[in-house]
Simulated scan of single mutants.
Amino acid sequence: MVRFRHIPPTQFLKGFEAAARLESFSRAAEELGLSQSAISHQMRLLEGHIGQPLFLRIGREVRLTDAGRDYQRTVRQCLELMEAGYRRLEPYRKPGSVVIYAPRDFARRWLLHRLPSLTQAVPACEPWLDTSGTPVDFETMEVDLAIIYAEEPPEGHESLLIARDRLSPLAAPALVKALREPADLLGLALIHCEHDLGWADWFARAGIETDKLWRGSNFSDGDLGLAAAELSQGIALGSLPLAEAALTSGALVQPYAQIIEARRAWYAVSTPDRLADADVRGAWDWLAGQAEALSLEG
Results as ranks from 00 to 15, higher is better:
160 L>Q: 02
170 L>R: 13
276 A>W: 03
178 A>Y: 00
109 R>F: 09
127 P>K: 06
82 M>T: 08
103 P>I: 07
241 P>M: 04
268 A>F: 07
180 R>Y: 05
136 V>N: 06
112 L>C: 11
72 Q>I: 12
144 D>R: 09
48 G>L: 02
178 A>V: 07
113 H>R: 14
223 D>P: 00
6 H>D: 12
169 P>V: 11
159 S>R: 09
8 P>W: 09
172 A>G: 03
71 Y>C: 07
64 L>Y: 06
8 P>S: 06
164 R>K: 15
112 L>Y: 10
241 P>K: 01
191 I>N: 04
226 L>Q: 14
297 E>S: 12
258 Q>L: 09
117 S>M: 13
285 D>C: 11
117 S>N: 08
141 M>R: 10
282 G>R: 05
182 P>M: 13
83 E>G: 10
159 S>Q: 08
57 R>N: 07
181 E>Q: 13
200 A>P: 00
159 S>H: 05
41 H>E: 01
131 T>H: 09
35 S>T: 04
78 C>G: 12
145 L>T: 08
239 S>D: 08
270 S>Q: 03
21 R>H: 09
44 R>T: 11
224 L>I: 08
210 T>Y: 10
144 D>C: 11
232 S>I: 08
263 R>H: 15
177 K>F: 01
16 F>D: 03
12 F>W: 13
126 E>P: 00
144 D>Q: 10
277 D>G: 07
46 L>T: 03
253 V>K: 10
123 P>I: 13
80 E>P: 00
1 M>I: 00
265 A>I: 08
107 A>Y: 03
130 D>L: 12
198 G>F: 06
126 E>S: 14
65 T>L: 11
75 V>D: 01
21 R>K: 14
246 A>H: 01
251 A>P: 00
186 L>V: 07
241 P>S: 03
99 V>Q: 05
216 G>A: 08
34 L>S: 03
256 Y>A: 08
120 Q>G: 04
20 A>F: 04
126 E>R: 15
217 S>V: 02
43 M>S: 06
21 R>Y: 09
167 L>P: 00
78 C>Y: 01
131 T>N: 08
175 L>T: 01
173 P>V: 09
91 P>H: 09
23 E>A: 12
213 L>Y: 06
257 A>G: 09
277 D>W: 01
170 L>A: 11
56 L>D: 11
146 A>W: 05
179 L>P: 00
80 E>S: 15
21 R>P: 00
